[in-house]
Each structure stands twice: as C-alpha cells, then as structure tokens.
C-alpha cells in the first residue's frame, strides 16, 4: 500500500470540504508548483516536512557496464530531499516490521 494523489484528494474532500474536482486540481497544482520552482532553480523549504534542494553535478567519466566502453556522464542537476527535524523524529519512532 502506498499513499497516492487520489487518496490525498479524497482526504481534502472529506476534511476541508472541497468538492472532488477542486480537491483533485489542488493536489495536481501543489505538485506542479513544486516542479515549476525546482525547474526554475528554486529550492523549496517546507517547515516541519523538509527541503527539496538542487545539486549541480559536473561532467564525470563513466563506463557502459555491459560493454566496458568509456562514455562521459554529462553535467546535470539533481533534486535531493532533506527531511526536517520534525519529520525525522516522527519517522524514527516507527518500529514496525513492514519492508521499506
């Protein structure tokens, strides 16, 4: 079981009182604004949850693992997530036996 956009929208319908269409659009818009900001090179800081940071990686030598042929891995920008202290503390307390 995993939490998905559909379940998040369902809860906004039940708890906030948005209609189903509004709830679905809001969830979509929330993640789209995060993508737009990150695409634009903007870090996102959601207090209590965590930060989405951007890391620039310079070009480095790589190798095709199948053929052994050398191919450079081009410069790229990647998104990383740093959980906030509040989320870390809540998750640390999880002692369940579920796998990942």
């Amino acid at each position: 079981m995993a939490l998905t956009k559909a379940e998040i929208a369902e809860r906004l319908y039940e708890e906030v009182g948005l209609n189903k269409r509004e709830a679905k659009d809001l969830v979509e818009q929330f993640f789209e604004q995060l993508r737009i900001a990150l695409e634009d090179g903007t870090q996102i800081k959601l207090s209590g949850f965590g930060n989405f940071d951007l890391r620039d990686k310079s070009q480095r030598p790589g190798r095709n693992p199948k053929t052994g042929q050398e191919i450079p891995i081009s410069a790229r920008r990647v998104v990383t997530f740093r959980p906030g202290q509040k989320l870390k503390t809540r998750v640390e307390a999880y002692a369940g036996t579920n796998e990942e």
Binding site: M1, A2, L3, T4, K5, E7, I8, R11, L12, E15, V16, G17, L18, A23, L26, V27, F30, F31, L34, R35, L46, G48, F49, K86, L87, R90, V91, A93, Y94, G96, N98, E100
Partner: peptide, 28 residues
C-alpha cells in the same frame, strides 16, 4: 481553504511515512 489543504496534505504525507507507508506521486 487552500492554506488548510496544503497543511492537511503535508500532514497526511508525514503521517503516512511515520506509519511506515510509502508515498507515490506519479510525475513527482
């Protein structure tokens, strides 16, 4: 309502992780 929605959404995501549940947001 937008403010409450965003806060509810983040709380729900935190709750999921705190209970060992994964979160899968397609495209994100």
């Amino acid at each position: 309502d937008v403010e409450l929605s965003v806060k509810t959404l983040l709380e729900q995501m935190s709750e999921a992780l705190s209970s060992g549940e994964r979160i899968e947001i397609r495209g994100f």
